[in-house]
Amino acid sequence: MQFKSKMIPLAGALAFALAGGAAAQEQVIKIGSVAPITGTDAHMGKDNENGARMAVEDLNAKGTTIGGKKVKFQLLAEDDASDPKQATAAAQKLVDAGVVAVIGHLNSGTTIPASRIYANAGIPQVSPSATNPKYTQQGFKTAFRVVANDAQLGQVLGQYAVKTLGGKSVAVIDDRTAYGQGVADEFAKGVKAAGGSIVASQYTNNKATDFNSILTSIKAKKPDIIFFGGMDAVGGPMLRQMKQLGINAKFMGGDGICTGSLPGLAGTALGDNQVVCAEAGGVPEARRKGVEDFRASYKKRFGVEVVYTAAYAYDATNAVVEAMKKANSWEPAKYLPELAKSNYPGITGTIAFDAKGDIKDGTLTLYTFRGGKREMLAVTK
């Protein structure tokens, strides 16, 4: 009995040592995620983070080998609160922590300043949602995006406003952010190119709640359409005040207002067919089932519906890992060339980039809202 009692601890120690050895052989690869987790855009930022987190969890669950070595991915998530200064601080923190890729940021106004930090460190950055053209026009080889940019989105919406909705007079409001101002400017170009007229240009900010002054000024111009360049947290209350002032113009916007959260933010002011917006991405019919399956898995995992960018963050993460596998390395300098020539079949479409880092053949999806729910109008390019 005494001999047996000594053997049990030895066996336990041996098992522990073996387990520790196996764990030691598993390489941990850190991937960063940055988005606003606090502030008015927090619901969209968490959606971004959740998409990347789902990808990491799925990759770890099925097991991934790179260069003959079993790896485990770890997501390091940071909050930039939609603030450029906080964004650069978060970017530097991730660089210091040793991430080999970053999925983010959400907003153009945070993505652009952070991109220089990642470029200087040689770390690939793939944004699932930043649409301002300037992001990929800086010449950074590390900057990529998986959605169409504002030039494409704004032009399509501007053409649609005049040619399909019959809007001859259009008022434009933006929130002075890199995203809001950028998409509003491109929309105005599209309207003018289609023969429409911009009768008013106003601006607010991304934390405003009172729009009576600018809306009263716009009401006097009697526009057919009001376009808002900004996010749903501002767009929803703006719709409410439009209704209070008796403004019956169509309300248009980019992907910032084209979310599942807009009905709750706008309430009864949403109306049927009053809002037309575009999402900087689009899924053709052939891929529809894959997206629906993803949405179901997402809801099961997080207990909430997809807001907007989750599937794009999921695809961005997987495209990065696919590049690592092809390069047989997770070192940024070695896998970056493979990422640049990606041809990854994602949920949202094929992830392939042009020389600047923009998505090739970027699609757009036009939506309206009926009965408090978002309904697709068309997928276009």
Rank of each mutant, 00 (worst) to 15 (best):
Q274P: 00
S169Q: 13
D96P: 02
D185I: 09
V56Y: 05
K62T: 14
A55T: 01
T111R: 06
F3A: 13
K299W: 04
S201M: 09
L366M: 08
F294C: 02
E78L: 09
L10G: 11
G267T: 09
A81I: 01
Q241K: 04
A23E: 11
P345W: 04
A178C: 00
D174H: 15
K168R: 10
K221G: 02
T348P: 07
A340P: 04
Q137W: 00
G230M: 09
T136P: 06
G104L: 06
T64L: 04
M242Q: 09
K189E: 15
G349K: 09
D358C: 03
Q86C: 06
I112L: 14
V291I: 12
V34K: 04
F228I: 05
L339S: 12
S201G: 07
A269K: 09
D185Q: 14
K373M: 12
D80T: 07
V307M: 01
A280C: 13
V199G: 12
G21R: 04
L245H: 03
P332S: 07
K85D: 15
A81D: 13
L339F: 09
P113D: 14
G166N: 11
G349I: 11
A17Q: 03
M1C: 06
Y314L: 01
L18P: 07
V34Q: 12
G195M: 13
N212A: 09
L76I: 14
G98A: 01
A311E: 14
A193L: 05
Y203S: 15
Y344A: 06
I359S: 13
T317F: 01
G235A: 02
P133Y: 09
K221S: 10
A319H: 03
D232K: 02
V126Q: 04
G158M: 08
V320G: 02
T131Y: 00
G195I: 12
Y135K: 05
P284M: 11
G195Y: 12
G51A: 12
A143R: 01
A17M: 13
Q74A: 14
G264Q: 11
A81W: 03
L245D: 08
A148R: 05
K326Y: 04
P263M: 12
G290L: 08
E186V: 06
R370D: 06
G362L: 11
T363V: 07
G190R: 08
V276H: 15
P113N: 11
F187W: 06
K243Y: 08
I173F: 01
